[in-house]
């Protein structure tokens, strides 16, 4: 195991996030969390317990009021917005409850957008990789359709492919199956599981679906912005 991989891929240290205002709202409080490579983590908890807030903080979309987030062992609190954006581009992939695909672009183009932003491949390689990702998710024949021509489950699979585009170490998913029917939920879940099992990436998913959470390898349960329990059933990187 290399030194890089020895460090947790994402870690939170004494992290608190308070929304300022006349009545300040504490979203999460005193979070200490280490997530290693190859983990499949469910963040659960009742509504308003700070699940999504925690995910956004771990994904550098939001900045903690106190404490820090480290990515691959490196602190991020001194990075400016553009540097955090670049780190997201390279190491993190997001999937949200809604697909958030760009409606004017085809499936294939949506997936190449993050690759084009990073600019590390030729256009041909980008298209090839996008097609491979679609093939792997059983969407190979939908490459030239627009998002509005796809079903909800198909769109969410494209969103996953887009999150994987730049080969990130971690996929952060916020209720990825929250708006899907049971069949699509099963498809998307098995894709996320494969990402962990076959590719060795880390997946952190916020979910309120207890069945799904129980099938994941680690469950972090939040109550009122604090970690209530953190159970590992199967550790990553066997």
């Amino acid at each position: 195991m290399s030194k890089l991989e020895a460090a947790p891929v994402i870690s939170a240290h004494g992290m608190t996030r308070i929304l300022p205002g006349t009545v300040p709202v504490t979203l999460v409080k005193d979070i200490d969390l280490e997530i290693g490579h190859g983990e499949f983590v469910a963040i659960t908890g009742p509504s308003g317990s700070g699940k999504s807030s925690l995910l956004y903080l771990l994904g550098l979309l939001d900045v903690p009021t106190e404490g820090a987030v480290h990515i691959n062992g490196a602190p991020t609190e001194d990075l400016d917005a553009d540097e955090r954006a670049h780190l997201r581009l390279e190491t993190l992939g997001f999937v949200f409850q809604f697909h958030f695909l760009l409606p004017e672009f085809t499936t294939l183009d949506n997936i190449t957008i993050p690759m084009r932003r990073l600019g590390k491949r030729s256009r041909k390689e980008m298209d090839e990789r996008a097609q491979e990702l679609l093939d792997a998710l059983g969407m190979g024949d939908q490459a030239h359709k627009r998002p509005d021509q796809l079903s909800g489950g198909q769109r969410q699979r494209v969103a996953v492919a887009r999150a994987l585009a730049n080969d990130p170490a971690v996929i952060l998913a916020d209720e990825p199956t929250g708006s899907l029917d049971s069949k699509s939920t099963e498809q998307v879940f098995s894709i996320l599981k494969d990402i962990v099992d076959k590719e060795g990436r880390t997946v952190v998913a916020v979910t309120h679906d207890i069945d799904l959470a129980e099938r994941m390898y680690r469950r972090v349960h939040l109550i009122d912005g604090r970690i209530d329990s953190d159970v590992t059933i199967k550790s990553g990187k066997r």
Binding site: G59, L61, A81, D82, A85, H86, L87, R88, L89, E90, L92, F94, F96, F100, L101, L102, I113, P114, R117, L118, R162, N166
Partner: peptide, 10 residues
């Protein structure tokens, strides 16, 4: 929002 979350800078 999605472009920014994907890693687009301001």
């Amino acid at each position: 929002a999605i472009l920014k979350s994907l890693g687009f800078a301001e």
